[in-house]
């Protein structure tokens, strides 16, 4: 991580792992007990998606992206990273896109979810993000306020959303709406990689 390429990457990660974990903890403390509501909303969206009510699903998903864009990125993450504002606006743009899809009905799957690979993978991703993700943090020794809950934290929100999109959408709108969650997951993965690489 000490080479030029490493430095290029590090420019985007101007904080240490301790400080990042502490930020996640503070976000958890600030929004508690909203975690219960967002988690419940996630389960509802998954049920709607599985019952072929994709429009309602996208409609409920949109405010969560708005909340994470504002509450996670603009209010907190941007304190540590100059790029945080841009990422926050990207999350808000995703919220608008989901809203447009819900209102226009474009890109929604025409058939009910069956056992196609996209649906199976989507379900697995959604369950991982909703149920598995908070436990990963807890098992690796983080405090309960660092438990990454869907709708509050960016990582599980992006993972669950990717899963839900695979179940609910088809065609180019599926790909378009997957760009921001996918990009964030790449950024987040690189962030943890840089932070956890020993100096």
């Amino acid at each position: 991580m000490s080479g030029g390429a490493g430095y290029q990457l590090q420019q985007f990660i101007p904080f240490s792992s301790d400080v990042y974990l502490r930020l996640l903890e503070r976000i958890g403390e600030t929004y508690w007990p909203w975690h219960i509501a967002t988690l419940l909303l996630g389960v509802i969206v998954l049920l709607l998606a599985l019952r072929h009510k994709a429009s309602a699903g996208c409609m409920l998903l949109a405010p969560l992206w708005l909340f994470v864009g504002y509450g996670f990125f603009l209010q907190h993450y941007a304190e540590l990273n100059w790029a945080g504002n841009y990422i926050g606006y990207a999350f808000i743009a995703e919220a608008l896109l989901l809203l447009c899809i819900a209102l226009s009905g474009k890109g929604l799957a025409k058939t009910a979810p069956d056992k196609r690979p996209a649906v199976v993978i989507g379900l697995a991703l959604a369950l991982t993000g909703l149920v598995g993700w908070p436990f990963i943090g807890l098992l690796s020794g983080n405090s309960s306020f660092q438990a990454a809950v869907f709708g509050i934290y960016a990582d599980p929100t992006a993972i669950v959303t990717l899963g839900l999109l695979l179940i609910m959408l088809r065609g180019w709108l599926l790909w378009l709406s997957a760009i921001i969650p996918l990009l964030w997951l790449v950024v987040s993965g690189l962030t943890w990689w840089v932070l956890l690489t020993p100096q």
Partner: peptide, 13 residues
């Protein structure tokens, strides 16, 4: 101050 002083508004830090 790179990385070491980027602690946001965390009162403890």
């Amino acid at each position: 101050t790179w990385r070491t002083f980027n602690v946001g508004s965390d009162p403890k830090l």
